[in-house]
Design a protein around this nucleic acid. Structure first.
Lengths: 245, 245
DNA sequence: GAAATAGTGTCTATTAGACAATATCGT
DNA sequence: ACGATATTGTCTAATAGACACTATTTC
């Protein structure tokens, strides 16, 4: 590193965010992403993005972006880093980098966002639109990461409210993965990563904080679970090579 | 995005790289990293870094960095993205971002690099020095990623030459992981991800390209293996939830 | 009672991990 | 022959996946 920093050219730096959520439909849940219509050239569809402000962090930029251009609040959550897009020709106007991020939020927190929520196809891109720049690719990678995380953890993105049943959780997984999963294996794997509350679903609200509507009001009442303590690191020792004593 | 891009402030963007390799010692291999002495303020030890040039990519910048300030050649390899460090106060001279990357190269390609190769402690930081900025943390994360990759794959970073034995491979793993691993389980897991060549180690060189010195010239000759075709994606279906038909 | 859902039990094939035995070399 | 290493075989406990059965509610 040299001393006179002003001698170095500096790129424009944008932050793009793939925003994902799971939305209830008539009979099920579906994974959707937020697509916006650009008002500047080049016109078309894109995911939300914004140039980073002086001495702002990526997280701050995402925060501003969500507040000003999407109309939602980030809260205490942090966006997941995805990658840096550095093709010098990716923006025809000037030399710029894009820091791609992604974030999954519960539907109730983002239902009113500015833009159009579009269902995600099995391949990970939004159905029915072609996005500008490399945004289809960003979205594919974001969806891929989200799906990977849900293969092994109950609800890493905390899309469910504080109390939920295994059926709620399975519906969530099927929406994220875009496929049906086997009930018994699913339940067994997930149960050991969850904390039972001792309470069951009833017609009345259970004691404690209110929780969202559950999948069905028919059938036998189900155990209510909550998210595990963070210490239940149910990963990491998986597929490690056995060490010599 | 607005039209007049010149209105936006732009950060300095540096690329830092954690360079890792496995070096032979008298009786074993050890994981080492390259530490350099800074010639500018703040003085101290750091990993190689450089500001990105106009319309250059991260990979190009790494390439220049390695050629000009380390004296080695990147070849066709690509650095692994790590994360973006965006603390506005991380550099006292000006507002800047750091794009952290890491790369592991075979010892024979980097032995003569400019700087000091320092052994990596079990925790992932170089033994005996304290690095400037957040470089200790970058290194910890790089080593963690490297170790994760070697838990499940024979040689994802291609640190071994074209032909090698399972003993060579195990020595490599033990250097990377910093722990002994069980021979039989190791061999079984790795063998199914490798291609046997049909040739064995002998006093003479085997047919084909020359390969580096093997671990030992004692004992029964061992099968020589080569890296698998990339299609042996021996991952990805691990710990997936079973789908409903 | 029928339908729907929750929860439990069990069988089997597979596999990890450990241990042991055998094979083949250099010295 | 001996030491060192490679390679193969086997035993056992654990577990995934599949399937079936029972339990409890709403309608």
């Amino acid at each position: 590193m040299e001393s006179d920093l002003s001698a170095f050219p500096r790129p424009h730096v944008a932050v793009d965010i793939a925003l994902l959520t799971v939305r209830p439909t008539q009979d099920r849940l579906e994974l959707v992403t937020l697509v916006q219509d650009r008002t500047e050239e080049p016109l078309g569809h894109s995911i939300p993005g914004r140039f980073i402000r002086e001495r702002h962090t990526v997280a701050q930029t995402v925060d501003e972006l969500l507040q000003l251009e999407v109309g939602i609040s980030l809260g205490r959550r942090r966006p997941h880093p995805l990658r840096v897009y550095d093709d010098p020709d990716r923006d025809t106007r000037a030399w710029g980098l894009s820091i791609a991020t992604w974030l999954a939020l519960p539907w109730r927190a983002v239902a009113h966002a500015t833009g159009t929520w579009r269902p995600i196809s099995p391949s990970g891109t939004p159905r029915g639109v072609k996005l500008l720049f490399d945004h289809d690719r960003i979205l594919r990678e974001a969806v891929s990461e989200l799906r990977d995380r849900y293969e092994t953890s109950p609800d890493p993105e905390r899309l469910l409210p504080g109390l939920f049943t295994l059926l709620d959780l399975r519906h969530l997984h099927e929406a994220v993965l875009g496929e049906r999963v086997r009930k018994d294996t699913f339940n067994r794997r997930m149960r050991e990563q969850l904390e039972p509350t001792g309470h069951e679903t009833t017609s009345l609200s259970p004691p404690g904080p209110p929780h969202s509507a559950h999948a069905s009001r028919r059938g036998r009442p189900a155990q209510l679970y909550r998210h595990p303590r963070r210490t239940t690191s149910h990963d990491g020792d998986l597929w490690r090579l056995p060490r010599e004593q």
